[in-house]
Design a protein around this nucleic acid. Structure first.
Length: 493
RNA sequence: GUCCCGUUCGUCUAGCCUGGUCUAGGACGUCGCCCUUUCACGGCGAUAACAGGGGUUCAAAUCCCCUACGGGACGCCA
């Protein structure tokens, strides 16, 4: 069986973009499933766009998502590793130049002495005439003498594209794609300053790193024609190509860098689980063909297949991500949920340091099924840590407004004080009975919830009461009674 | 402008290769009902799509052609 080698080749010009994450994820899943190798290669040959600071941020994005690489450059504190180092394209220029020299020697490339200004003028003329622009091929016709006469004038290197026939690519996702070679320019592979151009660099790197499957965004589909030509000219084994559709934002536009959520780490900030995000992103263009939608990371590795990748771009849908996030939250154990939620409580200024871990797990457990994002934990549990600072106005109107409100809370207070046992089951039974006397359990439950939490919504009342403890509950009911009495003085003239 | 790719419910998609089983399936969303101490969860139900036009065929979401729309490439950027 073939040893699968795939790569993600981001250019470190920003944070980890959601679209890059999708491509990386697909490569990673494929590699892991086939026990292959996942390579990270930094395409940093454009110094104008590369910034060291982004290297760290991008690494953090990958590691948060759980996308680890087997070979790659020093990146985010991880040392360089792998047999085909270096893995930064900027350090591989000599390898690219050597390949270019071979192409020149084998007649697959030629020197071009046209200046940038000449070419710009040519291009401008073509565009003005609404003609497709392609290099005239002026220097292609130069003979040995003419070239010698140029001596060491600055020259770029162009690829000698066949002038007839066609180039065919059997893309795993897009199917067979065919170009007329006359449509393909004699593109530059080496700048006149000797720097390699992207097309040369990728192909040479993929070749030397023995990449078996080139899985990348479909914005590269038309570039692939040039790459196929280069692979052939270099005499290397042709990798399998898979051009996967990109991720669109909710309006159907290309996911711009400035949009919230474009940066993968923003989802972490917003309380999303990495396993939910990767599950969602992979669903943007892939299904197993059955009705399963919620996958663990391991299940994804098992079920994924390149062949079932869709061919059209997908719009990002926050609602579905939210649903999936809830699904994944519910699949966590109470302990796991507690551990993920603790930093969020901390950040919200709720001090949980005095609570023992088991208690915190139970607290996490009683609101687990109510969370859409991890951040929801704050409004679900803040009252455990601080007494309600205010009572929800609408709930006060509804549950504490009538004349018997205070008296009813006195009754509730008594019931709590005399509770047979301080467990949610026992309390539930007590209030069931109390409710019968009061005209429905709702008559006692809502005023109590408001007294204990200050809100009308939250975790199960008896569960939270049990966790809050008897003393705190009695104190809060007392406080509520005083609040009502004080309020009555104001409202009754 | 030239070339390349795409187009099934609002959204993600199944089905398309190997035409009939599709009065087009699932999921999210939305709406309704049930469960219920709240909010959720869960359950049940409803809603809603084959871009348009030609052709091939007994039969087309599925095959072919054209058009429209969307995207991409056309750089000494990646």
């Amino acid at each position: 069986m073939e040893n699968v080698r795939v790569r993600i080749a981001p250019s470190p010009s920003g944070f980890l973009h959601i679209g890059t994450a999708k491509i990386a994820l697909i490569n990673w899943l494929f590699a892991r499933q086939r026990a292959g190798t996942f390579v990270l290669r930094l395409e940093d040959t454009d110094p104008d766009r590369t910034e060291e600071q982004y290297v760290e941020a991008m690494c953090e994005g990958f590691s948060w998502l759980g996308i680890d690489w087997d070979e790659g450059p020093p990146f985010g504190g991880v040392p360089e590793r792998g047999p085909y180092a270096p893995y930064r394209q900027s350090q591989r220029a000599q390898i690219h130049r050597d390949a270019a020299a071979r192409l020149l020697a084998s007649g697959h490339a030629y020197k071009c002495f046209c200046s940038k200004e000449e070419l710009d003028a040519e291009r401008a003329r073509a565009q003005a005439g609404k003609l497709p622009w392609r290099y005239s091929g002026k220097c292609r016709a130069l003979n040995a003498e003419q070239i010698a006469a140029k001596r060491d004038a600055a020259a770029s290197l162009r690829f000698k594209t066949p002038q007839s026939g066609h180039t065919v690519l059997n893309d795993l996702v897009q199917g067979p794609v065919r170009w007329d070679n006359q449509q393909i320019d004699d593109f530059i592979i080496l700048k006149s300053n000797g720097d390699p151009i992207f097309h040369l660099a990728v192909v040479v790197d993929d070749l030397t790193m023995k990449i078996t499957h080139v899985i990348r965004g479909d914005d590269h589909l038309t570039n692939a024609a040039k790459h196929v030509l280069l692979f052939e000219a270099l005499g290397g084994p042709m990798p399998t190509f898979a051009h996967v559709p990109m991720v669109l934002d909710e309006t159907g536009k290309k996911y711009s860098k400035r949009m919230h959520g474009a940066n993968v780490l923003e989802w972490r900030e917003d309380g999303y689980l990495p396993e939910a995000l990767i599950n969602y992103v992979v669903l943007l263009g892939w299904t197993a063909g059955d009705d399963k939608e919620v996958y663990t990371r391991a299940e994804l590795v098992r079920a994924f297949s390149l062949e079932r990748l869709g061919r059209s771009a997908a719009k990002f849908d926050l609602k579905k991500l939210q649903w999936l996030n809830g699904q994944h939250i519910r699949r966590l154990s109470a302990d796991e949920l507690r551990d993920r939620v603790l930093p969020i409580l901390q950040k919200a200024g709720l001090d949980s340091s005095g609570r023992d871990p088991a208690w915190l797990s139970r607290m996490a457990g009683i609101c687990q099924e109510k969370l859409v994002t991890l951040h929801d934990i704050v409004k679900q549990t803040d009252f455990f840590f601080v007494e309600p600072a205010a009572y929800e106005e609408k709930a006060v109107q509804k549950h504490w407004k009538d004349v018997e409100a205070a008296a009813r809370l006195e009754t509730i207070h008594r019931a709590l004080a005399n509770a047979a046992a301080w467990t949610s089951d026992a309390l539930h039974a007590d209030f069931e009975r109390l409710g019968e006397a009061q005209g429905g359990i709702g008559k006692v439950v809502h005023p109590l919830r408001l007294a204990l939490t200050g809100k009308s919504v939250g975790p199960g009342l008896f569960e939270l009461a049990e966790l809050l403890g008897k003393d705190a509950c009695l104190r809060r009911v007392r406080r509520a009674i005083e609040f009502i009495r004080a309020g009555c003085i104001q409202t009754v003239p």
